[in-house]
Design a protein around this nucleic acid. Structure first.
Length: 831
RNA sequence: GCCCCUGUGGCGGAACCGGUAGACGCGCGCGACUCAAAAUCGCGUUCCGAAAGGAGUGGGGGUUCGAGUCCCUCCAGGGGCACCA
């Protein structure tokens, strides 16, 4: 893309940098005793060489590494700016705590409730953490997605779901015997007449208050805190509740009483940390209701559901007795409330759901849930017991990590002054080199001289914040830094205003949410603090697929790399010791499965151009592709073929830059048309990221060139057309195979570099053919094709079609009722 | 559970706006060159059929002169979110 855009006259910035902080470097340090910095910089050096070998036209003068103090110093400055702007704050929050390794774990690091490394049961701990206030931009981050037209719809959708805007209501339930009310959030206020219990999060202030006087509740809450927050933990955990003895009144009927439970499935950080349970509308609430003998009240019923018979009603009288019937009318299926335990009377063949609570909120008995929700909100607001509200799923971004290899948080903690920012002139707060990884936990925490400091405010001896920032912070603004990587501020406005937003961003789909959302947040926050002038970082986004490879395993389940596999005597695959090996499915390349290929080896064997060509040739780039030896061989053959093609034609060619003759023969014209059609389509294909199609067009032209007899001709026009075709071929493939293209360009007699030439332009008079082939259908079935001059009129087409023998045979005795002619495409005879 | 995407030869994949399904590549088959092999070149390659012809884009149904493409439905695979009230 960079090479193509450059040929199109754009000023292209194509930088490369290293997102280099993170856990793997620390693990390597622990396992091998190498300092994380040493390990990281060695990897960078190796990868830089690999990338250079691929010929990626990267501007290495802009290179940066996030672990370099020159980079993270500016990141610390951004942190302090955000702090000043109220976009960073500190609060206590619940985290997964590994009591053996003395560290916080990400949810992904908790396996079956235990720390992945220590195997110790994980605890829920409340720790002070730094947060970025991403929720300050919830609405903007959501609505601006609509304008990101050059982003894949899939990514925009994933972000929409992640931000998770819900319309709903906050409703206040009076608590019996107390002056305060319990505030809950719901997205379905229209089901309020299906409520049968209230549930509080174990972390809810009311639950905490009650626990102080109720040892049973206190124990229950402690038990909840031992559970992990990981997906597995949630799946396995039974829905448990503790009856607090407290009772709420239904806000619309003070005689209707609802018991208050503390339940382990209610989250404190969504909504208000309290809910009302509607067992008829929610499986989880239903499970809970059954477990604790709570009523189930129907609020929805499908059309066609019949009324219960008296016997059936009797069967549920127990349910009805538990609970006062508010109202029960039966008039043509329009009922206000109906108390039953299950969907016993529901006719499964019914189509539309009917809303039974409508009578309270709406005049019409049938409404969509959305209408009913809005009506319910109006009603609740009118009664003064609730209000419409919007709730986001998105939460603030906790960035504190108890890790060494990351950007230190530039804050000092003073007993008297609290959290005090490190003064700007003292930045960067640099990581110490002399650290000890021999015991678990954060080495910064144990580094007494590093962590001690003087309070910038009162001068007292205090300690530094020993946490480092989540590595996602590092990658949230590097694109801005690329525009002026050595500036002594986070950005240089002149540079950042010239380049941003990024015209074309490329990354894997795995970044669809976290990285891309954080970068969008950072861009807004940086704008607010005056570091740049745009809201959105990436105008165009392309998500490329990964390259996978077959996996190889022997009967013992050991994995082998492709290099270790060969063909045995019986034709089967064998491993290094001659044992039988089976080929498994194609998977994402990974060290554990050993299904990787070494770029250096590929480049040594086939050259960079072959590798580049193969990667672009078969699959659309947004899809996963499989790396195969056969595939790379095929690409290699094409490289050889191109070279030969040029070689064989060289003798016959007129000199470079020769004037075009005035006349061309038929075969020369055919080649010229093919050439200009290829020029036309390859550019468009590259623009649209359809590289596999561009490759196919290039193959087509080269096939024609290989088959042409023009090489043997003495005619000046023939020879000129041959040069035109060959030169065009070289120029079209140049963005994909730059090295070969330059080499051939020189052999074709040119002095300068091809990379400095503009992209070729197609001659529009040569991109269309003089004759076209039309399909002739009889009743929509193809029977023949006819050759006609381009744009021949309908009459001509119809006559030509009806004189085809195969068409006449198909028409037979009947007379055509209608003949449909689509110019230059098709004739359909209807009989 | 909710939301989204994708199903086309032996394989990767083409097919603009509803208009010749299978471009291009891989693989395979046959042939040429060679003592032979490799490389290379030529021809062929959706399936059934000797051919005429018929069938065919996950299954079923619909709209249309005409459907891979639009609509409904079912099936399969993949992805995202998820004690989110």
């Amino acid at each position: 893309i960079a090479r193509y855009k450059r040929a199109r006259g754009f000023n292209v910035l194509h930088p490369m940098g290293w997102d280099a902080f993170g856990l793997p470097a620390e693990n390597a340090a622990m396992e091998r005793g190498i300092h994380p910095a040493e390990w990281t910089y060695a990897n960078i050096a190796a990868m830089r060489e690999q990338l250079k070998g691929m010929g990626l036209s990267i501007d290495w003068s802009k290179e940066l590494a996030t672990c370099h103090p020159g980079y993270y110093a500016q990141q610390q400055r951004l942190f302090l700016d955000f702090l000043g702007a109220g976009l960073v704050y500190r609060k206590e929050s619940w985290v997964n705590w590994d009591p053996v390794d003395q560290t916080v774990l990400a949810n992904e690091q908790v396996i079956e409730g235990r720390g992945w490394r220590s195997g110790a049961p994980v605890e829920q701990r409340r720790l002070p953490q730094w947060f970025f206030r991403i929720t300050a931009y919830s609405e903007e981050l959501l609505s601006a997605l609509d304008e990101l037209e050059r982003w894949p719809e899939k990514v925009r959708l994933m972000q929409r779901n992640w931000i998770g805007k819900s319309r709903g209501a906050r409703i206040w339930f009076p608590i019996d015997g107390r002056s305060d009310a319990l505030e809950i959030f719901t997205t379905r206020p229209d089901t309020i007449d299906g409520a049968s219990f209230m549930a509080l999060s174990p972390h809810h202030p009311l639950a905490q208050e009650l626990a102080a006087k109720d040892p049973g509740l206190s124990d229950f809450i402690a038990e909840c805190e031992h559970l992990g927050t990981s997906e597995e933990a949630i799946e396995r955990t039974e829905k448990l509740g503790y009856d607090t003895g407290l009772v709420c009144s239904h806000p619309l009927d003070s005689n209707w009483k609802l018991p208050v439970y503390v339940a382990n499935f209610v989250l404190m950080d969504y909504g208000t940390g309290a809910i009302f349970g509607v067992p008829s509308g929610d499986q989880r609430d239903l499970d809970f209701a059954r477990k604790y003998g709570l009523p189930v009240i129907e609020t929805y019923r499908p059309v066609g559901a019949r009324d219960p018979s008296p016997q059936e009603l009797e069967a549920y009288e127990d349910q009805l007795r538990r609970h006062p019937v508010v109202e029960h009318r039966s008039a043509e299926g329009r009922e206000l409330l109906f108390h039953i335990s299950e969907s016993a009377f529901i006719d499964k063949s019914a189509e539309e759901p009917v809303h039974y609570t409508n009578a309270r909120f709406l005049d019409e008995p049938i409404a969509t849930p959305i209408e009913a929700i809005e009506a319910a909100i109006d009603y609740l607001e009118h009664q003064g017991v609730g209000e419409g509200t919007v709730q986001f799923r998105l939460r603030d971004w906790g960035v504190s990590r108890q890790r060494y290899w990351g950007c230190p948080i530039p804050v000092i903690h003073c007993a008297d002054c609290g959290a005090v920012p490190v003064p700007l002139e003292e930045l960067p707060v640099q990581l110490p080199d002399d650290v000890d990884f021999s015991s678990p936990g954060n080495p910064l925490e144990r580094h007494e001289s590093w962590k001690s400091a003087d309070c910038p405010s009162c001068g007292k001896a205090v300690r530094r914040d020993t946490d480092t920032m989540d590595t996602f912070v590092d990658s949230s603004w590097y694109f801005a830094r690329f525009t002026a990587p050595r500036a002594d501020a986070p950005t240089r406005r002149e540079a950042v205003d010239y380049w941003l937003p990024v015209d074309q961003y490329i990354g894997g789909i795995e970044h669809a949410i976290l990285h891309l959302l954080y970068a969008r947040f950072f861009t807004r926050a940086m704008k607010q603090c005056g570091h740049l002038g745009v809201e959105e970082p990436f105008k165009g986004l392309f998500t490329q697929g990964m390259i996978g490879h077959e996996t190889y395993q022997d009967s013992a389940g050991r994995y082998f790399s492709p290099d270790e596999i060969s063909r045995g005597d019986n034709g089967g695959l064998v491993g290094p010791d001659g044992q039988a090996v089976t080929a498994g499915r194609v998977e994402k390349m990974s060290k554990s499965k050993k299904n990787t290929v070494d770029p250096a080896r590929i480049i040594d064997t086939y050259g960079a151009d072959t590798a580049r060509w193969f990667m672009l040739s078969d699959s659309p780039p947004d899809r996963e592709m499989e790396w195969t030896d056969a595939g790379i061989e095929g690409a290699w053959r094409f490289v050889q073929r191109l070279w030969r093609l040029a070689d064989e034609a060289l003798e016959a060619l007129p000199p470079a830059g020769a004037e075009a003759p005035s006349a061309f023969g038929a075969e020369a014209m055919e080649l010229r048309r093919a050439t200009h059609k290829a020029i036309q389509s390859v550019g468009g294909d590259i623009e649209q990221f359809r590289f596999n199609r561009a490759v196919a067009r290039i193959y087509e032209l080269s096939n024609l060139l290989g088959a042409t007899s023009l090489v043997k001709s003495d005619d000046a026009g023939d020879r000129w057309a041959l040069r035109e075709a060959l030169e065009s071929l070289v120029r079209l493939m140049a963005p994909m195979m730059p090295h070969l293209a330059e080499e051939l360009w020189q052999r074709l007699g040119h002095d300068g570099m091809l990379v400095d030439l503009p992209w070729p332009e197609a001659d529009q008079t040569l991109t269309v053919d003089e004759t076209v082939t039309l399909a002739v259908q009889v009743n929509g079935k193809k029977r023949a094709t006819i050759e006609l001059p381009r744009d021949a009129d309908e009459k001509t087409a119809e006559q030509a079609a009806l004189s085809e023998p195969a068409v006449l045979r198909a028409v037979g005795e009947s007379t055509p009722r209608k003949v449909i002619v689509v110019k230059n495409r098709i004739v359909n005879v209807v009989v």
